[in-house]
Amino acid sequence: MSQLPGIEGAKQLAAYTAVDKHILPHHKIIGIGSGSTVPYVVERIMQQGTELNKGRTFIPTGFQSKELIIEARLNLGDVDQYLTIDVTIDGADEVDAQLNCIKGGGACHLREKVLAEAAKSFIIVADYRKNGKYLGENFAHGVPIEVVPFAYAKVLQNLRSVLGSPNASLRMAKAKAGPVVTDNANFVIDAPFSRDLIKDPSSLLTKIKLLTGVVEVGLFCNIAQAAYFGNQDGSVTIKRVEGAKVIEESIAAS
């Protein structure tokens, strides 16, 4: 493989390695996630060949991944047609030592979580900047929370005054006047939490999810089976679930 330089090379390396190890010939229903690493996932899948891919169906998590599937001339499906997915590969904004993730920087985390939970195997691909010990260390924007529009103000109030995120804010669009609107016609709140509050992401997820008006939370807990991180030196760090533990290993640069 001719590796790209810098961060893009790290993303490509993680994506290629994960596809080689987890998108196998017998896999027929494949979930394609969102984010800047995912185009390299589709690129590597295409390199597996037309004959193999013509018998597969690919399920997108949002507009970006749908367009990637269409542009690659792969068979497009929907999760309401295929309730069980062989494997889903997706990016992440941050991953902790136990493979809990923050996702939703691209406002696709509702559909991403549906495809993650529908998959027999859920695999994360990212560059080294997303590899952390605790959530919130590197991704400072906060936990993405999809909310129904008419409830966003009350959810914001509860996040700030009850759950301990005083800087929670409605995500605003950059190229239009007004808030970001998800593929599901909802709004997104970004809620930063202190280390003490986010150190148990499963508990925090439950508390946020119980707020009326919340559709989904960008905390992915106890879902991923493995995460692949491309590094600056051309190596790949792999974190994978083995029994009740998360094992970390490294593949040296080739």
Rank of each mutant, 00 (worst) to 15 (best):
N184S: 12
L159I: 09
F150P: 01
V155D: 09
A116M: 11
A118I: 00
K207Y: 01
E146F: 13
Y152W: 14
K209F: 05
A175G: 00
V215P: 01
L197S: 05
V147H: 08
P179E: 06
K130S: 13
G164W: 03
S121I: 12
L135I: 02
I198F: 02
A185H: 15
P201V: 10
D127F: 08
P149G: 10
V155C: 11
N158K: 14
S203R: 13
L205G: 02
A140Q: 12
V143M: 03
G136L: 09
G164A: 05
L210W: 01
F122A: 06
R195E: 01
I189N: 02
L210D: 07
E112D: 11
K176H: 00
M172W: 12
P201T: 03
N186C: 15
S194I: 06
V143Y: 05
S194D: 07
S202T: 15
R171D: 10
A175C: 00
Q157R: 13
A175D: 13
R129D: 13
L135C: 01
Y152H: 15
S161I: 13
I198Q: 03
D190P: 03
D200Q: 00
V143I: 13
I124R: 04
R195W: 03
A168D: 03
L219Y: 01
L210A: 10
A175T: 15
P144W: 08
H141W: 11
